[in-house]
Design a binder for these strands. Structure first.
Lengths: 201, 201
DNA sequence: GTCTATACTCTGATAGAC
DNA sequence: GTCTATCAGAGTATAGAC
């Protein structure tokens, strides 16, 4: 079913994708089973395959939806704004994504970690184009002396790494911090300090 | 076979682990198959299971060996040394680990990402203890005013995130940078700058 | 649209000859 | 120690009744 039309179909599709996100993000593509997804969605396995042609198709749908959401905060970085304000806002939004959508972050991480077999073109296309564009903006700000001179692409990498770490390695973060911590609140403070110092001209 | 004894057994065990590292790091535990490992090792599947009791046992052996290597650079951080020198050396060694042992990094990342079902205790035990100890060292240095005051555990997290990113998200890094780049050389320069600015009192 | 039953493939593990 | 043959279970997908 390429395009769900009725309200019931719409609702069931969403239920399936929601359950699939749970399972794929926790176990990776091959580790996930249709049984688990069917259980989570409260549907039978064949019924799943009435809505989506295959396990592959469910996964693909999730990934496609994901990339757009994932790139939004970077798209929002405005060349006309104040450099430090814009970059700090990007860091904050990216950290909020990790906090509010950790499953999506892990789904993405699983895919990249295993060589991005189902996202290659999106990464080499849309993602690269956007990074190139925003790296240009950062370079301009550096040329104008408004932020410190750094490799702009690696600056973007650093934001990805530092924010996604809290979602992707959540288990480790929790285990090392122990009880009585709010990882994301602490990370927010830490990253604020880090980037203010790093960017100061 | 818990303990290989002859030279042939020793050699075969190592060949199997080497092939297994390739496969597990690229596909995760469930995505990996004994057939792939057997192929890579140039042995038959039953022969694999003559050396290791199960697929699980091979994986477990790799993980156990890994953690020790992984923590060595942090162990080396010397409370008696110069703070900035010690921390920069840790960052450099950790980045070298990512560069020279990316498969190990991805094996670890796969495991944590999926909730560390086979490493929970190691993380809550050895790893947490070591981090607590070294966080104490960092805190002392901050108290003495020798480096800037920051959350010491999140400082360690940041080093993990920034260095492992280049191994774990290698595909993305390569795709975004495009041809003609040496990611690890550039990362080395970037991280040197980042931590010097961050740590300056 | 949804279910039960089932076909078929893949995979981890074992038996047993050599 | 190593192999061929094979089992048992899990997993994706389909057939067909309702």
């Amino acid at each position: 079913m390429p395009r769900p039309k009725t309200r019931i179909q719409q609702k069931n599709s969403e239920t399936i994708l929601e359950a699939a996100l749970d399972v794929f993000s926790a176990h990776g593509f091959r580790g996930a089973t249709l049984d688990q997804i069917a259980d989570g969605a409260g549907l039978s396995k064949p019924n799943l395959l009435y809505y989506f042609a295959s396990k592959e198709a469910i996964h693909q749908t999730l990934l496609t939806q994901l990339l757009d959401t994932w790139l939004d905060p970077l798209r929002d970085m405005d060349a006309g704004g104040d450099p430090v304000v814009e970059i700090m806002a990007y860091v904050r939004r990216k950290l909020e994504l990790s906090r509010d959508y950790p499953r999506e972050s892990r789904l993405f991480a699983n895919e990249i970690l295993q060589g991005a077999p189902r996202m290659r073109e999106a990464i080499e296309g849309d993602l690269k184009r956007l990074v190139d564009e925003k790296a240009g903006v950062l370079r301009l700000w550096m040329d104008e002396g408004r932020i410190a001179r750094l490799d702009p692409v690696h600056l973007i990498f650093s934001i990805w790494a530092l924010t996604q770490h809290y979602a992707d390695f959540d288990v480790q973060v929790q285990a090392v911090l122990g009880a009585g911590h709010d990882p994301y609140a602490e990370a927010g403070v830490f990253l604020e300090t880090l980037y203010r110092r790093l960017l100061a001209p």
